[in-house]
Amino acid sequence: MHPVHPVRPAPSGVPATDAPPSRRSVLRGAATVGMGALTAWAGTGGTPAAAASHGGAGTARIVSRCAGPYEVMALRDAHGTFPGKRQDWFPDAGDSDWARAQRLDPAAFGPDDTWELDFRCYAVRRPGGRITLVDTGIGPVGSPAASWAPVPGHLPRVLRLAGIERDDVDTVVLTHLHEDHYGWTVDTTGTPFFPNARHVVQRAEIEALAADDSATAYVVEPLRRAGLLHLIDGRVRVQSGPGHSSLTAVPTPGHTAGHQSVLVEGGGRGRIMITGDVLVHAVQLAAPSVAYRLESDQATARRTRQNVLDEARDHGHLLATAHLGRPFLRP
């Protein structure tokens, strides 16, 4: 049973109501009213097209680390300034929390109290060259993220820069079904972008989708029709490798009901946890009790976040984050 959440102040320009609006409508409203449509995304001029070219396609788009036989590559699909002010989205954060967060991740702090963030996917290259992709970014023009995010993302080009062809991807793990994490799963005609890949999603994530959630029509049904949707329940080993190495889907609920992370275990030679949206801003690294306004169950998200951070500290493994300025970090 989900706890009853207090009604929090809405971002500037978004009316507060007793019935919580959908995540997408809140983001769309903040982008349209508070930020002058999508102009805030453009680092150089003010249109979605300009935002798409922001930052170029240089080496910063790909950062890699190894865990045993696995190469884990952080792939930056996009970068931008989140709609609204950072305090809007983390209303419980205090001055000391923000100060520590800025020391941990100065790249997240834009002018006028804004939140700068990357939209990042991860590719895990296994022995033999096959790829497990974790999340697929914001997607092309016309994707569900287009109303608030800097579409088009760059993932297809970044994959080519990393030497990855679509047919190399045999597994896609979707940490959750928010539009900035499934955008390149299909194209705008509903054709799967990775036709040889099973797409691993927690059953609880599918079951929790609202009837009008864009994820159902845009990604779930096309994958189901293509026979590529692979539902799992709980902690499941997704891939096994040499020397006790493995990739494991680990339930990390709270941000959404069926949110999952991916633990890359290098067989005694390092561990990397690809966290999805367990923590979305460095303020949650500085103060794990700070809630993100769009978490579906803030109490569960808080417990999950603390557990993930505690485990990383206890075992000395890296966290691989979706939105922080540094893709890999030790808490």
Rank of each mutant, 00 (worst) to 15 (best):
L324N: 01
W89K: 05
R225L: 11
D135L: 11
L294N: 02
S289Q: 13
H315V: 00
P144K: 06
H154G: 06
D212T: 12
A301K: 10
D77S: 09
A78Q: 05
A101G: 07
S245R: 11
Q260G: 01
H154E: 06
E116M: 02
P111Q: 09
L38N: 05
A57K: 10
E179S: 15
T39H: 10
H230E: 13
Y70K: 02
A312W: 05
V238S: 02
D277A: 08
P9A: 15
A291R: 15
G55H: 03
P127F: 07
R120S: 00
G267M: 15
A287F: 00
A78R: 04
D95Y: 02
P331F: 04
D113F: 14
A101I: 01
G267I: 12
R302N: 00
S25V: 07
T59R: 15
G190I: 14
R293K: 07
M35I: 08
T185W: 09
T189K: 09
G110T: 06
A30C: 10
P253F: 09
V134T: 04
W115D: 01
C121V: 14
G227N: 10
A40C: 07
S53V: 05
A67G: 10
D118Y: 09
G34R: 10
V238M: 05
D112P: 00
D170A: 07
A301F: 07
G55M: 01
V200N: 07
P140S: 10
R326M: 12
G183P: 13
A146M: 11
A31L: 04
E295K: 02
L209R: 06
V280K: 04
D95T: 15
A249S: 13
T17N: 03
V290E: 01
L247R: 08
R100A: 02
T59V: 11
L263M: 14
H255L: 02
F119H: 12
Q202P: 12
L285H: 02
T81N: 04
R160G: 05
R126A: 13
V186F: 05
G243R: 14
H2N: 06
M273T: 08
G266I: 14
T321A: 15
P192Y: 08
A31V: 03
G80D: 11
P11Y: 05
A215H: 08
H54R: 06
T81S: 11
T171K: 00
V219W: 08
N196R: 09
T136V: 14
Q87I: 12
G316I: 03
D112Y: 07
P83W: 10
V250G: 05
P253E: 09
L223Q: 09
H315I: 00
G254N: 09
G153W: 11
R28D: 10
A210P: 05
R65H: 10
R203P: 05
S147F: 03
A320R: 00
D180G: 11
V186K: 10
L285N: 02
T188G: 02
F328V: 08
D314Q: 14
H315K: 08
G325Y: 08
Q102G: 00
G241C: 06
A145D: 13
A217W: 07
P253N: 11
S240G: 09
